[in-house]
Design a protein around this nucleic acid. Structure first.
Lengths: 122, 122
DNA sequence: AAAAAAATGCGACTCAGTCGCAAATAAGGA
DNA sequence: TCCTTATTTGCGACTGAGTCGCATTTTTTT
């Protein structure tokens, strides 16, 4: 089981709850909010957040806030930016965008505005 | 009264509550959260949020989420990015960063990571 | 000045996220 | 295998941002 090893590599015990949680993120193609995950969640809300924090601290997960007050989580794979549409609230991953800032260490970039579809409709 | 005119320009009635609210943002040098504003707030929480939404829809204010689960508001003046530090949670305005995305309309950019001070301390 | 429309305050509510604690599960000896 | 200890989990209660309906106040219109 690949995921189990991935967890244990970070000195975290691979409990059933944790493996199933990371599995959800592995199968997703884009960031997920608690609301997205809730239906298929087999653990308590508190446990969910505790494990999410654990994964974030370990560097396995990334989290950021949308403009619609939702917090999104995703697997920390390759660094990339996220575009969040003000109108339709969709979240898109933006690759091939390289920004550097002197003396700052960038971990995530969120761009707010109008997505392709919503720009056209204006 | 400058602020009053600014509000009325957007077809919004310049009530006392609204003028006082925009005044707070005019005097601030950086984005403010509800928590920051609360002490000097003279209106009800509901009214505050209603007026904030109004200003945002009118394009007078900008809002974005920090990584510490707080929502920040600021006057929409010149377009610029924001840097939020994962460690000290400080919010900094980043000028002279120009990013363009084909077919997307960018309204705000939030960069998460480690700020200058916290990068050094690592 | 009266009637209609908009803005506000109030209270109740929702929902994400947190915390303490007790029960359950896992790990480590002897 | 049994006992002890450390971790993890579920449960319930709680906080705090943000929303909603409704009655009251303020503003606008006729």
């Amino acid at each position: 089981m690949d995921i189990k090893k991935k967890i244990e590599k970070h000195n975290i015990k691979a409990t059933i709850a944790r493996v199933s949680l990371l599995e959800i993120f592995s199968q997703a193609q884009k960031p997920l909010s608690y609301e997205d995950i809730k239906p298929e969640l087999k653990m308590d809300k508190a446990t969910f957040y505790r494990n999410i924090s654990l994964f974030i601290d370990a560097g396995l997960l990334n989290s950021f806030e949308s403009n619609d007050k939702k917090r999104y989580f995703e697997l920390k794979s390759h660094p990339h930016a996220h575009f969040i549409c003000r109108v339709c609230n969709s979240v898109e991953c933006i690759d091939n965008l390289n920004i550097t800032l002197q003396e700052y260490q960038i971990e995530n970039i969120i761009i707010n505005g109008l997505c392709k579809q919503c720009t056209v409709r204006k």
